[in-house]
Amino acid sequence: MIVTVASGKGGTGKTTVAVNLAVIAPEGSVEVFDCDVEEPNAHLFIKPENIVTKEISTMIPDVDMNLCTLCGECEKICRFSAITMIAKKIMVFPEMCHSCKGCSMVCPAGAIKEGSRVLGSLLTGQSSRGFNLTWGELRVGEAMSPPLIKQVKNKIDKGIGKLFIVDAPPGTSCPAVVTLRDADFALLVAEETPFGLNDLALTVEGLKKLGVPMGIVLNRADMENGIIDDYAVRENIEILQRIPFSREAAKVCAKGHFLVDELPEIKALFQDIYLKIINNLNSIQKSDKGGQ
């Protein structure tokens, strides 16, 4: 089953929660997927070994001017201004292309071949803790992260019956949605600030649209204002855990270490989160079966 760690707002502690959960889970029962391909960080904590890297590309048009009749059909079909006719030449703007192949399909002269543009890399490695990490690294300068995110998610092999922990990118637009759709459960990492609440609410709306069940982990919970608690009650979302703010914890994370290794009181909190997630997944599975 897939548990996706998300937040809306950046920097609330998604990656911290994802990697510490992976460490606390029984050995051999989890795999981690970092879908924040623009700024992946899980590998900084997990420090995987035996890394296998694969370059990921996407199709862009490659025009053979010997065959081109300058009919302009390619320019007409392209919605992204990626191919255009200027002074009797066809110009391609690779970074604008969405790889729909409309231009090559519509070209009556067969002048458009398949070229390629590098999106980034897909990487897999093994943690010394007995689980695999798969992540994507978007090429700097590349605008489109969703196709690479899809490649990372394609590596999830649902057949092997493990718990797949997915680290989502911040925000509520395409990269976050592509990551969160088809998650079995979303673990929302929230902070008790007005920015945190605003962005949490946006993510919750998105998850409702996608039909993904969810629970909240309050991170750096030190204030007594309870704005997230009030919201969670109104929306009927369970707060699974509160991780208190401490300079100690901030230091451990800053160095790229695992909280569960160094702070026993936080380890206990993560063990509890893990059990609650498993319980939630079990009841989701049961209700799915009941519905069939």
């Binding site: 990656t15 700024e39 700097v140 990269p175 800053a254 790229g256």
Partner: peptide, 30 residues
């Protein structure tokens, strides 16, 4: 946040960028 489509749109043709970072491994990497 990030380096993708809306970031590129925010940065293109800007005269200057002010990077706000934090002293963590992730902050420095990003």
């Amino acid at each position: 946040p990030g380096i993708g489509c809306p970031v590129i749109a925010s940065v293109s043709n800007a005269d200057a960028l002010l990077i706000v970072t934090e002293p963590t491994l992730s902050g420095m990497h990003d």
